[in-house]
Amino acid sequence: MHQTLFGRLPKTLIILVSAWILMEIAVRIYLEWPLSTDFYSSLPADQITEYQKQIGVRATTGKGWIHLGWIADPEREIYRIERATGDRWLYVRDVVFGSFLNHDGGKYRVWARPKNGDEFRLIGEVTVAPESGIAPLYKPLIAGDWRTLLKPEKSGYYINDHTIFQDKTGVWRLLGITSKSDGDFNAEKYFAVGVSEKFPPDSGMRETDPIADFSELAWAPHVIRADSV
């Protein structure tokens, strides 16, 4: 008589795998149960629809491209993008997240299609045109030996997600998630900061005081320029 697959597996292995699955479920419940938002969301789920109505669809442009953005709920919705051609709306594509990049301008609209089968809901319409010209393409090159940019000591021991930018005074800055742990993301509640007068610096960036220390998880840092600020 042939034994089943589970019959051939050592009982110890089955117990270990089962224990690992139970621990994984327990950790996820422990982390997500007290949260009013999903793990990667800044809005409670019951407020997303209202914010979608308020914000609608926003557009930005560059040389040869347009980008549409809206508040999304990827766990519960799929988004249908349509483009007006004459007096008709033509299907473009479905997307999961609140982002769509394209070369062609025109009049667009975005629908939310709930995964539970509810009716489609219009998020918004927008008319947008790309800027004239060809978008520049930048190819990253390794221009020299590897070097350490910043090894934090005041606020943590490593750099996780980070961004590097030059401020309006000409100073280069690095902002990066960190913590005084061995990489525990639950402890990453602020950004380490490094500065230098040129980039790349000859001997690494100087560490300054951490920022965004609000006793909450700190997400991937980024910089927005608005009104020359």
Rank of each mutant, 00 (worst) to 15 (best):
H2K: 09
L5A: 07
K11I: 13
K11P: 13
I15H: 10
L16E: 04
A19H: 07
W20Y: 15
L22K: 09
E24A: 14
I25M: 10
V27T: 07
R28G: 10
R28V: 15
L31K: 09
T37E: 11
D38Q: 10
S41Q: 14
S42I: 15
S42G: 15
P44F: 03
Q47C: 02
I48Y: 04
T49W: 05
Y51K: 00
Q52F: 05
K53W: 01
K53T: 01
T61F: 06
H67V: 14
L68P: 00
L68V: 09
G69A: 14
P74A: 04
P74Q: 00
I78H: 12
I81M: 11
A84K: 15
T85F: 15
R88W: 10
V92I: 11
R93A: 00
V95I: 03
G98R: 06
S99D: 08
F100R: 06
G106E: 03
K107Q: 10
W111E: 07
A112D: 01
R113A: 07
P114G: 01
L122Y: 02
V126Y: 03
S132R: 09
S132C: 06
I134K: 00
P136L: 10
P136N: 10
G144I: 05
T148G: 04
K154N: 00
K154Y: 02
S155L: 01
S155Q: 01
Y157E: 06
N160H: 07
N160C: 13
I164H: 00
F165T: 02
D167W: 03
D167F: 02
D167L: 08
W172I: 13
W172T: 09
S181P: 11
D182I: 14
A187D: 08
F191W: 04
F191L: 11
V193Y: 00
V195G: 00
K198T: 07
P200A: 10
P201Y: 11
D202N: 11
D202A: 06
S203T: 10
R225G: 06
A226P: 08
